[in-house]
């Protein structure tokens, strides 16, 4: 755990740049700017399927149903998922996640009532529920967080778990049908995660005796 703490502190400058670029790409900010800037937009990079010759539907066709239609639809999601996870891998590789941890550490206590040491687990939990769960367990076992802090922290993770990973993976299927930019539901969900954790914070304060 000491090792984890030490590593979490060092953030290369590329990390902040990677994080910023990722925020721009996934926020859809550049979609309307036009010109070459749209290369920084997830939907633009994801592109479209072509239409069959002299047809109005893509390879999924129209009017399908059942397992066959489900299969083709699910297959059509694969490119978006691969693009999203490929981009995330780059962000992680250049230290973008470390930068996010660094920026979040000082604000965890005021906004969530949990110590800054949870930052690594928190950022991981946004990408993968299982990674977050494993690290949270380790934090509690090392007595880095109290029983009540565990409750608050898991309340944060439990609703919309692994949100960034899941939203970009399966959600990408619906992105083109939404009437709002892809960043709007994401922002709403992040706010609700904070809200939910704070409801748990209140509940703990009122009803849960802190275990030693």
């Amino acid at each position: 755990m000491e090792e984890l703490k030490r590593k979490a502190v060092k953030v290369p400058i590329s990390g902040y740049i990677a994080l910023m670029i990722a925020l721009v790409i996934f926020s859809g900010l550049m979609a309307k700017v036009g010109g070459g800037w749209t290369m920084l937009d997830f939907d633009t990079l994801n592109g479209k399927f072509g239409l069959m010759k002299s047809a109005t539907a893509s390879f999924m066709g129209q009017g399908g149903s059942g397992a066959r239609d489900g299969f083709l639809f699910a297959l059509s999601l694969a490119p978006g998922v691969m693009l999203a996870l490929g981009l995330m891998e780059i962000v992680e590789h250049y230290g973008g996640l470390k930068a996010a941890q660094r920026l979040l550490t000082p604000i965890l206590r005021p906004i969530l009532g949990i110590p800054g040491i949870c930052c690594v687990a928190l950022v991981s939990s946004l990408q993968s529920t299982d990674a977050g769960a494993g690290m949270t367990k380790a934090l509690r076992e090392n007595k880095d967080i109290t029983g009540n802090e565990l409750l608050i922290f898991t309340a944060f993770q439990f609703t919309a778990g692994g949100i960034i990973g899941n939203y970009l993976a399966s959600g990408s299927a619906l992105f083109s049908y939404m009437t709002v930019p892809i960043s709007v539901p994401l922002a709403v969900m992040l706010v609700m995660k904070l809200f939910g954790a704070n409801m748990m914070r209140l509940y703990c304060k009122m009803f849960v005796q802190e275990e030693k």
Partner: peptide, 29 residues
Amino acid sequence: VFVRGARKGWKVAIDNIIPNVLMAYVCIK
């Protein structure tokens, strides 16, 4: 690095998304 991530995405699509979505379509049917 990108290819490594894209490969993870392919695994998610095959192991997770396709079976789950197919199941949902069958349920709806």
